[in-house]
Structure formats: structure tokens, C-alpha cells
Amino acid sequence: MTFRARHLLGIEDLSPDDIRIILDLADQYADLNRRPRKHSDALAGMTQINMFFENSTRTQSSFELAGKRLGADVMNMAMQASSIKKGETLIDTALTLNAMRPDLLVVRHPHSGAVNLLAEKVTCAVLNAGDGRHEHPTQALLDALTIRRAKGRLHRLTVAICGDIAHSRVARSNILLLGKMENRVRLIGPPTLIPTGAADLGVEVCDDMAEGLKGADVVMMLRLQKERMDGGFIPSEREYYHRYGLDAAKLAHARDDAIVMHPGPMNRGVEIDGTLADDINRSVIQEQVEMGVAVRMAAMDLLARTLRAEREGGTYA
């Protein structure tokens, strides 16, 4: 069992074994990260460029920290303020950066498929840090690691993904990953926020929280993506909170030991009750952030290994 992927563009391209390899290595990095000396030299001498075409604090700093802990030289590019404004196309920007010979390119872009397009044009390894409504693979992997550590396994679990599924790349990546690992996935949300054809994705779809949460081992809340909505998906935030916001009463329908997750940033009082989010007995939201760094270290380490193998094989120009 070896990990051979050239890029990490989506969960769609990963096999269950690939997922296990990443998670196993991430477990080790999670331990490393709890030690006082949080350092490895897995990426020593390598250059990592973070290209974020969409604002991000959490994901970008997580990738930055992951790279630094592995000894890479990390550069952050604020793409909103750069040449894009001068009319340069995505491909030209990518080619320009590629000419500087980075080893790892971490990309977030507001349009689905943009990271795939970019990966076709560059010689370094590309990590998708979220493209439009398409995929956010490292988020799904960190969610998987969090679940595996909390539940002791990553199969035969009932996972309820709740809220704004339609605009969520986190949901898509999680549906794919949890499906590949043989879990039962339920999507719960108002029908306006459930993508069409969702029932064909191998999941159960439900528009009632009480019913949907029944027997759930994991309750994954999603952020209401107000910035992606062009209006009219829900009547108001208060009605949304009333029907779909997670509070103790709704959570009571899930299993007693069900954990609560959220990819953040949270809208407290819109999709999740603030007290519940902070409840250390139920909420693993902080652990998700912690596992995020570990998973990204693992993913970058593995891609760097592929890269090195390629170069030693002489195929890398």
C-alpha cells in the first residue's frame, strides 16, 4: 500500500486505502503537534506557496503552520490584491508561480473546477484548499480523523450533515469520503439548500431535524453561506435557527454519545447554539481545528514523497 497521488484535488480521486494512509500518518503528526518540539524536516528545502483567491483565515493559517512545522519555506499570496486585479488570468498566474519552482501549491478559488484547471498547467504538487462548491478535501480528511479518534472507527457510523448543503464544498467532500469508508450519510436541511440530485449520491435526504438526527453517531453542522447566496433560500435566520439550528433539544434525538462537529467559522445562534458548541462533552469543534494541521502535514508529506520519487526517477524536469 503506497500513496501515489500527484495532487490532492478532491476526495473523488482517493481510494479507501489512500484515505487510511493519510489518516494514519496524520495520527502521528497529531501526536508530534502535542509535543513541545513540534518539528519534522519532511519538507526541508521545499517551497510551499499558498494561493488564496478567496479570503480565509483558518484554512490558510492551518496550511501555513503545517508547512512550517514540516520545515518548508512557506509563502502566502493574497491573490485578491495581486495581478488578478490587473487582468492576469488564473493560468498565467499559475505559470508565473510555477516558474519560481515551488514544490507545493495550496490553492483556494471561488469557482468549482478552478484548482483542477490549475493543476493541469503546473509541475508542482497542487492541494485543493476549496474550489467553489466542488470539494474541500483536507476538511473532509480532518473531519474523518476527528471522527476516527472520537469514535474509534470510521465505518458503519451514521453521520448527519445538516444545513446549507447546496453551497457547501465541505459537504460534498464529506459525502464522498464517508461513503467510500462505508458509513451511512444523511443530509438534513431545508429543501432549498439541498442540491438537486442529492438522493442519487447514495445518501438519505431529510428535511426535518428530529427525524434526521435519529440514531446519528455524528452530527455535522454546516455554516450558512450567506456570501454565496443570491437571496431567498430561507425566509429568515430566526426561522432557520428554529427549524434547523442545533440545540440541546434537537441533539437529544441523536445517539447519547453523538459528537457535534462544525467546519467553522460558526454563526452562533444561526445554525448552532453557542453553549452547545462550547460543550466539551459533545462538541469536537476545537479538536477539528487541531486535526486540521495534522492532516495537512500528512497530505503535504505524502505528496512530497511522490514528488521526490518522481524526481529521483528522472521524470521531473
Binding site: 462548491r133 460534498r172 438537486t196 440530485g197
Partner: peptide, 9 residues
């Protein structure tokens, strides 16, 4: 449909 949903388009 399914394809557009998966591709996030």
C-alpha cells in the same frame, strides 16, 4: 442533477 451537484456547478 447528480452530475452538476457533484461538480459543484
Amino acid at each position: 442533477g447528480r452530475f452538476a451537484s457533484l461538480k459543484g456547478l
